[in-house]
């Protein structure tokens, strides 16, 4: 059953050095506050899993939390490169970073396979491309019914899944609305999970019986961190801070400006710093 704890306590309990950790959120509801707390607690040698490692993983990689990245698209959406990711891959700074690179379709299927307790995922993909030559985890399987050769990738089974959601009720049930990406799959595929939420309420206010709700017994820890997805967004609360994404390009380009920004905005702050971004759309 989910326990309500502080974000610091949740990270302390759930994420250990050397873990495979998935911070998910497809552009929307990205758990930035949880990423920052992980950086503050100095976690090392993490294998970071995420379809779209955007600024959150740029920051964690640049601060030396990661030794491996499993991903399918690593850029600053609509802006350009992730300069810290590039510096790690191209120059080994602040340390070498191993890559396991997939396509989106393969990652999404691999999360689903993990949630479904299957050993691998199949898809009609990777045809005529070079990724299988550099990623030995992209293999193939022959359909026993038709003989069609399909791509196969291992299921994703992270030690920890970390997501942000709009709200939890007092029993620890969590509601996600809007673009829900692979967050449900990431939590169900993981051994432990942390969910940060905009607010804790008496009634989730579910508008449809088909809403995306994670029952409290599927979650390890919940921490209320209003604004905790900034500069990504929380549907119904605050919009994506596109200006912050554009500004990140300049901040992250050089190691010095990056480290200075991280010191001021992450190392010397706490989860409460996110509260200024929290609001409820009218």
């Amino acid at each position: 059953m989910a326990r309500f704890v502080s974000l610091a306590a949740a990270v302390e309990e759930c994420i250990r050095d050397g873990d495979t950790v998935s911070f998910e959120g497809f552009t929307h509801l990205i758990p930035f506050a949880a990423g920052h707390e992980t950086i503050r607690q100095g976690r090392k040698r993490l294998t970071l899993v995420r379809m779209t490692p955007d600024l959150i993983y740029d920051q964690m990689i640049g601060m030396g939390c990661a030794e491996k990245l499993v991903f399918s698209w690593g850029g600053n959406p609509g802006v350009g490169s992730l300069h810290r990711l590039r510096d790690a891959v191209e120059n080994g700074w602040p340390g070498p970073l191993a890559l396991e690179e997939h396509s989106h379709a393969a990652m999404a299927n691999a999360y689903e396979a993990g949630a479904a307790n299957l050993p691998f995922a199949i898809l009609r993909g990777y045809l005529g491309v070079d990724l299988p030559k550099v990623n030995p985890n992209i293999r193939s399987v022959t359909c026993p019914f038709t003989g069609e050769v399909l791509a196969a990738v291992p299921a994703l089974r992270p030690d920890v899944g970390v997501i942000h959601a709009q709200r939890a009720d007092r029993e620890g049930n969590v509601l996600l609305e809007g673009i829900t990406g692979v967050q449900k799959e990431a939590v169900l595929a993981s051994k432990r999970s942390i969910v940060t939420v905009e607010e804790v309420v008496d009634d989730l206010g579910v508008a449809s019986p088909n809403a995306v709700v994670l029952p409290g017994w599927t979650i390890t820890c919940i921490a209320a961190v209003p604004g905790g997805a900034h500069p990504s967004y929380a549907h119904g609360h605050y919009p994506r801070d596109n200006a912050a994404y554009i500004a990140w390009d300049k901040i992250a380009r050089e190691r010095d400006t990056f480290l200075a920004w991280m010191k001021e905005h992450v190392l010397e702050r706490g989860p409460d710093a996110f509260a200024v971004h929290a609001r409820r759309a009218a």
Binding site: F71, S72, G75, R86, H104, A105, G125
Partner: peptide, 9 residues
């Protein structure tokens, strides 16, 4: 290092 394939493949 470019961003990668994403959905394109």
């Amino acid at each position: 290092r470019l961003p990668g394939g994403g959905g394109a493949p």
